[in-house]
């Protein structure tokens, strides 16, 4: 059990605990903080799976930006007026549906555990590290989806402004 594997399992379990906390907390702010911790654990697992650039992006964009935005809006909207006790019925139904999915997919995956393709996460460290390799691929083969992604962000911005801006001047 090399160190990397040990770290991977530690962070994986930590992330699972954090994720569970996210959906069980009563107050929205608490679950947001646990979400940040979960994202940081995810970033750690990315590093172990030799995707350093993505780990950095993950921490910056997700943990910093998205959750920051969510916390900001939680404060603005003041979602703290306490949640009415949700009926257990709903919890059970959701749990049951999820359980069904887990069992079904796990069963299939267990069947394929011993796939001939050798499910080893190979130690593939490309020359110049992950960032450069990723940059090369992103700007040559995938330039076009990159452009479309920029259109997407523009649309998201306009959509957000239209929906939320206080006084839309004529």
């Amino acid at each position: 059990m090399s160190w990397a594997q040990l770290f991977f399992y530690v962070f994986a379990i930590l992330a699972v605990i954090m994720a569970l906390m996210v959906i069980t907390r009563r107050k929205a702010v608490h679950s947001a903080i646990f979400l940040i911790l979960a994202f940081i654990c995810f970033a750690a697992t990315y590093v172990i799976m030799n995707a350093e650039l993505l780990a950095a992006i993950q921490v910056l964009v997700y943990a910093g930006g998205v959750v920051g935005l969510i916390i900001f809006v939680i404060m603005l909207v003041g979602a703290e007026e306490g949640e009415v006790k949700q009926t257990h019925g709903q919890w059970l139904i959701a749990g049951f549906v999820a359980l069904l999915l887990v069992v079904e997919v796990a069963f299939i995956l267990l069947g394929t555990l011993f796939r001939p393709t050798g499910a080893l996460a190979s130690k593939m460290v490309p020359a110049g590290g992950n960032t450069e390799a990723l940059g090369v691929v992103l700007y040559t083969k995938y330039l076009f989806p990159f452009e479309v992604a920029s259109v997407l962000l523009l649309a998201a911005m306009i959509g957000a402004i239209v929906l939320a801006k206080y006084k839309l001047k004529r």
């Binding site: 139904i93 959701a94 749990g95 999915l101 995956l109 080893l120 130690k123």
Partner: peptide, 26 residues
């Protein structure tokens, strides 16, 4: 190294935590 199936199981667990959260919380 880390067998891929462990990674996939880990990601599936998180996925289903998300599913439960999305369906049950109000």
């Amino acid at each position: 190294m880390i067998p891929l199936s462990h990674v996939i199981i880990f990601s599936l667990v998180i996925f289903f935590i998300g599913v439960v959260g999305a369906l049950s919380r109000r």
